[in-house]
Amino acid sequence: MTIHEAPHVCPQQALTLKDFKSSVEPIWCSGCGDFGVLQALQRALAELGRPPHEVVVVSGIGCSSRLPAYTTAYGFHGVHGRALPVATGLKLARPDLEVITVGGDGDGYSIGGNHFLHACRRNVDITYIVMDNRVYGMTKGQPSPTTEADWDSDAAPGGTGVKPFSPLAIALAAGANFVARGFALDVKPLAAVIAEAVRHPGFSFVEVLSPCITFRPEEMEWKKTIERNAVTATTDRTEATAKVLGANEMTTGIFFKGDRGAYASAPTGHGDAEKIAEKFVVGA
């Protein structure tokens, strides 16, 4: 068996959520929205039917980025903000694998913001799930790019005064091929959206509102303010953008399903390097 040609083992029986559940205990606070996202992802993976060893879950740094160890899939927990380039390299090197990227709003929109833009633009066939709690949780409560301008914190007393941006609108402008928003506590519908995102070719982006009950206890109210599945998917990027910008920011559902061709994977096979070496030869 070579490292390139791992056997594609079809599951003997249908996979369940449990097949993707690892023995590692999450470090998350009790009540964290990320538990719901983990469960939705495990459910989606079971539904998709690829066994855990054919899936790689990639993340950066932050509370939500601890997720890979909590699944039984292969995983990569890298440095802060760089999950998308890791996932890009992985998928281009091994197109046979299912590559899921996860992380938080600080990781993906702030320190990793440039990679977010270029992952949307490049359109490699990976799925990116952002658990957006509008706060840096692991460092104990600083404002992120999606935090309200007037949210008071020790790091920015009285608020940053800076308007949060819309990750969905940015994803659409940058070329993402699938754009959706979900809610962490709606596990079943979220699982369905994630499964659809994974199936959709190209770069699929799922923004998940995932409350941080420790540093943003007011986010516990989200379950009342969420507007569930109040949108229908369009294949028109302009229309989708108008919907994203016009809709309530608590609206969940699939906004956009594009038809861009995914970035081509690397040509495989080895030529003979010695033929290339002959190009250096002179005076023969």
Partner: peptide, 19 residues
Amino acid sequence: AEDEIAAINMCCGAAYAGV
């Protein structure tokens, strides 16, 4: 890559993938 950091992180992904 979009930047130097992305480049080496892409390599991390490819290395992990066995390439």
